[in-house]
Amino acid sequence: MSTSPSPPTLSVGEVAKRSGVAVSTLHFYEAKGLIRSLRTEGNQRRYPRAVLRRVALIRIAQRTGISLVEIKAALDHLPQDRAPSADDWRALSESWRAELDQRIRHLTGLRDQIDSCIGCGCLSLQECPLRNPGDVMASAGAGPRVLIDD
């Protein structure tokens, strides 16, 4: 009677090297439930090879501004026993498209308005389209009401 060998796994150092992500980042991703590892009898982490594509997907999604909470929610719908496929990525990216489009519109609007901003955050202008549209803070009294580092 023969048993099939278990699929090869990677150490945390191997995953870090292959993915370009620090070991501490992998531990963080694991603590947040984004990736999973197996443990050896010596309690060392071992990752299935599929984790490399999962880490790549996480990094790309983060670069587009998707939060780790949103990434985790999306990854929770994918099987853990295989690498995310091109179809999986297509579905995930499509689900994030509307939010990204809205963020792009918002940033474009801010970019287009920034020339009229004096950049001091004092809100001394009668109407600041960035921090006080329509001068809604006038009813709160004179002087700055919202600071940039709020």
Rank of each mutant, 00 (worst) to 15 (best):
S4Y: 14
S4I: 12
P8Q: 09
T9K: 08
T9N: 03
T9H: 03
L10S: 06
V12H: 02
G13L: 06
E14P: 01
V15S: 04
A16G: 11
R18I: 09
S19N: 04
S19R: 01
A22C: 01
V23T: 06
T25G: 09
L26F: 04
L26Y: 01
H27D: 09
Y29M: 06
E30R: 10
E30I: 10
G33D: 04
G33R: 11
L34T: 00
I35D: 00
S37R: 04
L38P: 00
E41T: 12
G42S: 15
G42Y: 03
R45V: 02
R46H: 06
Y47H: 05
P48A: 04
P48F: 05
R54Y: 02
R54H: 04
R54N: 03
R54P: 03
V55T: 08
V55F: 04
V55G: 07
V55Y: 02
R59K: 14
T64L: 13
T64R: 08
T64V: 13
T64Q: 11
G65P: 09
I66Q: 01
I66Y: 00
L68T: 09
L68Q: 12
I71Y: 00
D76C: 10
L78D: 02
P79L: 07
P79V: 07
P79R: 10
D81G: 15
R82S: 05
R82A: 05
P84I: 12
P84N: 07
S85G: 08
S85T: 15
A86T: 14
D87T: 13
A91N: 07
W96S: 03
E99K: 08
D101T: 13
I104Q: 14
R105E: 13
H106K: 15
L107Y: 07
L110R: 10
R111E: 10
Q113N: 14
I114E: 08
D115G: 15
G119S: 05
G121C: 05
G121A: 05
G121D: 02
C122E: 13
L125Y: 03
L125S: 14
E127P: 01
R131L: 15
G134E: 05
D135Y: 03
D135L: 02
V136L: 08
M137D: 09
A142T: 11
R145K: 15
R145N: 10
L147T: 13
D150I: 06
